[in-house]
Design a protein around this nucleic acid. Structure first.
Ligand code: ZN
Ligand code: ZN
Ligand code: ZN
Ligand code: ZN
Lengths: 161, 161
DNA sequence: CTCGCTCATGTTATAAGATAACATGTCCGG
DNA sequence: CCGGACATGTTATCTTATAACATGAGCGAG
């Protein structure tokens, strides 16, 4: 992405997603501020999960005063709205490919990640069979499930050869 | 647990599990050293997942020189042998209730945790339906799965009331 | 016996991830 | 003009984890 007076500029596809996110936010009465927009753009521009401090390094190109709370607060906002997910195994963040579909309601409780340990790429899925199996297992234990973290590690098709 | 000249002493049930673990180690040609034994005992004595630095605090009662690597190395050893698992959501460690069953081969790739967000207790399960659903989802994506982290959060039977 | 290897641990330092607490500034309605 | 809501700035600290190098016990080859 490029640096301009207005902050970072991203690829056309990502700019389009940012526009959409901005629209969704204003429909909810919230704001995708320039800071939040930049953080989301950076996450979406990464082809791998990106850590908070890597985001911070990028942010500092345009925002001298950026500090950890700067990026964590933006990430909190974006995660609450389902634009971004955290991959627990990696302590890193990915953009949600279907953020527009579930409009502002975080589906993070029903998502699974496929993490390639070779190329580092992460694929998001929403697998009904896994969701059902998890719900049943929880029920069988008398457990009132709120959310589930499902992160599958291995080799992606390309890397498995 | 009590502190003696020999290090920490645990409850009889836990001492029995430590004995068993020691036997399993020596069958594999490894050693459950006093340090590793203490760390395992501390993990088993906790009714909740315990963090590395909490373990470290306990350890220092008997080992003045204990430092982060002391506990992380012991945990690495114990995890490799399946005596201990890490709960990723909590960055904390739990004892494996079935460590003796799978003798030295870490089943951590096929385990699920039920985490109660109220009382903090964690239950380990090995649910075939979840394992199968995860394997199928991976396969459908052309993904060669190595392991899966499945951590379910909610309220346990007691806490759900 | 002693050299050199392996393994376990000690020791020091730092990296990496996350949050607490308080300050500042903008916007907007009353 | 005041006061509250919200976003961000700022400083400090906390938690989690690893890197890198040092020490020392135990053991087998020669
Ligand atoms: Zn998503
Ligand atoms: Zn790959
Ligand atoms: Zn287990
Ligand atoms: Zn509970």
């Amino acid at each position: 992405m490029a640096v301009s007076e207005q902050g970072l500029t991203f690829s056309p596809e990502i700019e389009a997603r940012l526009e959409k996110a901005a629209r969704l936010c204003s429909e909810q009465g919230t704001t995708l501020t320039p800071l939040r927009r930049e953080v989301l753009g950076l996450v979406l521009s990464s082809d791998q999960p990106i850590g908070a401090y890597a985001l911070l390094d990028h942010l500092r190109r345009t925002r001298a005063g950026a500090a950890p709370p700067t990026v964590y607060r933006a990430l909190d906002f974006l995660r609450e709205r389902g634009f971004v997910h955290k991959v627990e195994r990696l302590n890193a963040f990915v953009g949600c490919p279907s953020a527009a579909d579930h409009v502002g309601h975080d589906h993070g409780h029903a998502v699974q990640f496929l993490i390639c340990t070779r190329c580092g790429r992460v694929t998001e899925t929403e697998d009904e069979a896994i969701i059902a199996a998890v719900a049943q297992a929880a029920e069988r234990h008398g457990f009132r499930q709120m959310r589930a973290t499902v992160e599958i590690e291995g080799l992606c098709r390309a890397c498995a050869g």
